[in-house]
Each structure stands twice: as structure tokens, then as C-alpha cells.
């Protein structure tokens, strides 16, 4: 009996360590296999700086749009019930499972020069493909479903009774939203923001297809990595390391904020 228990315990530990190793080793290898001096040296070129700057620039803009348009949608999904809501929620997750290149083609079919809206847009002399706008649009498209799903969950977690009591105290729905819903949902909303930011930062397939790959204009970090892989693997590894560090710091920062805010809610 004791033997069996020990065996079960060991198996359990082995499974956990094995899974963690499998998940982390490929990412860590980026840092371990090459010397840091070499990584820094390879990073020190215009293409990398341009790509980093472009990535931060486009994802920031994408994020503003995701928050501005995703939040009302998430709130509506969380607080209303109607026929076919389940279907809509599943449909909203489709961009998550769709291959990113397919998304790129889809965006082209809508906003491309011969696309559904592209023809109308070109009348106003607006051309989207091969511009930074296309990069932002691809990122928005890929990251919004994650944001909406996570934000919806945090809105759902806010007790409806709090909203009802707020109204009986003479506070309108709109002001209740800002004084009750947002403060209580904020930790969840922040992780939604972080998750979608990280996703936008790593967006590759749709950008490649829809926005193209031109250094300084549409070449984001993932595209720079992919392009560098064609010739110089060391540069690719260096840029990957940079992308991983940026994403990791971002997620770490948000998780700290999240922890801090949950503490302020639950205790004195």
C-alpha cells in the first residue's frame, strides 16, 4: 500500500516536471544555446530596431481599438441573454482556431483591391493592403476574440445583484458601469488586455498574407524572424529572444498588477 502510494506520488511529480520541461525547454533553448554577447551583437542592426519599433507601435494602436470595440461587445455578451447566444459565442471563437493564413486571405477578400469593401474604399483613395494599417487590422482581427472571451468572463463574474442594488440607490446604469462593473472586472480585463497584446505581438500568418513583408513598413518582429530564418539562423534566434523577453515582461507586469488589485478588492 505504502509502495503504491509512493509510486503514484513519483508518477505525479514526473508528469508535472515532464510537462513543464516540454513546455519551457524549446523557449529557453533560444537563450541557452547561444551566447548572450552574440545575441546582443546580432540584435544591433536597423532591421531589428525597425521591426521592434513597428511591432510596439502597431500593437499599441491595435490594442486601443480592441479595448474600445471589444469591451462593449464583451459586456453585451455577458449581461444579455437571447436566442442563439451560444452559437454566436462559438462563432466568435472561430478566428482563434482558423489558420492565420486563412484569416489573411479572408481580410484580403474583404479589404483587398478587388474585395467586398476594398473597391468602395479605393474610391476614396484608401488602400489598405501592404500598409501599416493592414498590420494593425490583422492584429486586431486575431486578438479581439481572445480579449472578448476573457473580458466577457470577468464581466459575468460581477454579481448582477450589485448592479441592481446600485440602481435602487439612484445611480443610473451608465454610472453603475463605471463605479461598480469596471472596478470589479478590472483584474480580469487587464489580463484580457495582456493576453491580446501578447497575441497581437506574435501575430504572423495574417500579417504576412494581408500586409506583406517590408522592413520598416510592415515587417513586425515575427515576420523579421521568419525572414531571417531564410538566411541567418543566428539573427532569427536573437530576434526570437527579444520577442520572448518583451512578451514575458509584459505578462509578468500585468500579473503583478492583477494580484495587487485583487488584494485591494478583497481586504482592507
Amino acid at each position: 500500500m505504502f509502495f503504491l502510494k509512493t509510486l503514484a506520488r513519483i508518477t505525479f511529480i514526473v508528469i508535472i516536471v515532464g510537462t513543464l520541461t516540454y513546455l519551457f525547454l524549446p523557449l529557453l533553448s533560444v537563450f541557452v544555446t547561444k551566447s548572450p554577447a552574440m545575441l546582443l551583437n546580432k540584435l544591433n542592426n536597423d532591421i531589428t530596431y525597425q521591426a521592434l519599433f513597428l511591432s510596439l507601435h502597431t500593437t499599441s494602436i491595435a490594442l486601443i481599438f480592441i479595448i474600445a470595440f471589444g469591451t462593449p461587445l464583451a459586456y453585451w455578451l455577458a449581461k444579455s441573454s437571447f436566442q442563439g447566444k451560444n452559437g454566436l459565442e462559438v462563432a466568435l471563437k472561430m478566428p482563434i482556431v482558423a489558420p492565420t493564413a486563412v484569416v489573411g486571405v479572408g481580410l484580403l477578400l474583404v479589404f483587398g483591391q478587388r474585395g467586398l469593401l476594398g473597391q468602395t474604399l479605393s474610391l476614396f483613395n484608401i488602400e489598405i493592403p501592404f500598409t501599416s494599417i493592414a498590420v494593425v487590422m490583422a492584429q486586431i482581427f486575431m486578438a479581439t476574440p481572445f480579449f472578448v472571451t476573457t473580458a466577457r468572463q470577468s464581466f459575468e463574474a460581477v454579481d448582477d445583484q450589485l448592479l441592481e442594488v446600485s440602481r435602487t440607490l439612484g445611480v443610473s446604469t451608465w454610472r453603475t458601469f463605471w463605479r461598480i462593473t469596471i472596478p470589479l472586472a478590472l483584474p480580469g480585463l487587464l489580463s484580457a488586455v495582456a493576453l491580446s497584446w501578447a497575441l497581437a505581438l506574435g501575430e504572423f500568418g495574417a500579417t504576412m498574407m494581408f500586409a506583406g513583408n517590408l522592413p520598416g513598413k510592415t515587417q513586425t518582429l515575427p515576420l523579421a524572424i521568419f525572414t531571417a530564418l531564410q538566411s541567418n539562423a543566428d539573427v532569427a534566434v536573437s530576434i526570437s529572444a527579444l520577442l520572448l523577453v518583451v512578451s514575458f515582461l509584459l505578462l509578468l507586469f500585468v500579473s503583478f498588477i492583477d494580484k495587487y488589485m485583487r488584494l485591494t478588492i478583497s481586504s482592507r
Binding site: 501592404f130 506583406g212 513583408n213 517590408l214 510592415t218 515587417q219 525572414t227
Partner: peptide, 8 residues
């Protein structure tokens, strides 16, 4: 200068 995208 007219190139809009570099493909692999």
C-alpha cells in the same frame, strides 16, 4: 523603391 512586400 516600388516594392511593397518581400516574400520568402
Amino acid at each position: 523603391s516600388q516594392v511593397v512586400s518581400l516574400e520568402t
